[in-house]
């Protein structure tokens, strides 16, 4: 597939997503979430499509995409591991756990392992503050993280 037909394909799929949400009041965030579900990211090519259909400037759409940590222009790894950095987890040694994760995976926050297996993101509270320290791997939550609970989590993430 050429780059051009790839872009055209993105535009077609993006248009369908925009139109499916167009009747909502304040449709932009639901659209961006749906685009991420479809493409693993908000493709650059989708920005003019959204702008056109919602009668916004490209700058406005870009402004929204770049404001929110959840949205990004390139896909994450196969897995996304979110490790909590907030106070309740800090009180239970969360910082040490986070250091262990970074050294075990060999990446820093917001980075993806070279094999594309996992992206590491900080998160500021998963609402698991009485089971700290906590992490979430692709929507699956784990609490009271220690060496024993961390090992299988990292294995899963590397898969």
């Amino acid at each position: 597939m050429t780059a051009q037909s790839g872009a055209a394909d993105v535009a077609v799929r993006a248009t369908a997503i925009v139109d499916a949400n167009a009747a909502l009041e304040g449709p932009l965030l639901p659209i961006l979430h749906d685009l991420q579900d479809e493409f693993g990211c908000v493709p650059e090519e989708a920005v003019p499509v959204i702008a056109n259909r919602l009668n916004l400037s490209r700058a406005e759409v870009h402004g929204v995409v770049s404001f929110y940590p959840d949205f990004h222009h390139s896909p994450s790894g196969r897995h996304v591991l979110k490790v909590c950095r907030a106070e309740a987890c800090q009180s239970m040694g969360g910082e040490k756990i986070a250091d262990r994760v970074r050294s075990a995976l060999g990446i820093d926050w917001h980075e993806t392992t070279p094999d594309g297996a996992v992206t590491l993101e900080p998160v500021y509270c998963l609402g698991l503050c009485s089971c700290a320290p906590a992490a979430m791997l692709d929507g699956e939550v784990t609490g009271r993280l220690d060496e024993t609970r961390l090992a299988p989590l990292l294995d899963e993430a590397r898969r």
């Binding site: 304040g26 932009l28 965030l29 639901p30 979430h33 919602l54 929204v64 929110y68 940590p69 500021y124």
Partner: peptide, 21 residues
Amino acid sequence: RMGAGAYVCGEETSLLNSLEG
């Protein structure tokens, strides 16, 4: 409706802006 990782959207006026897209 689902937010997108911004803590400040818990403030009611930024929440409304976010809800509006």
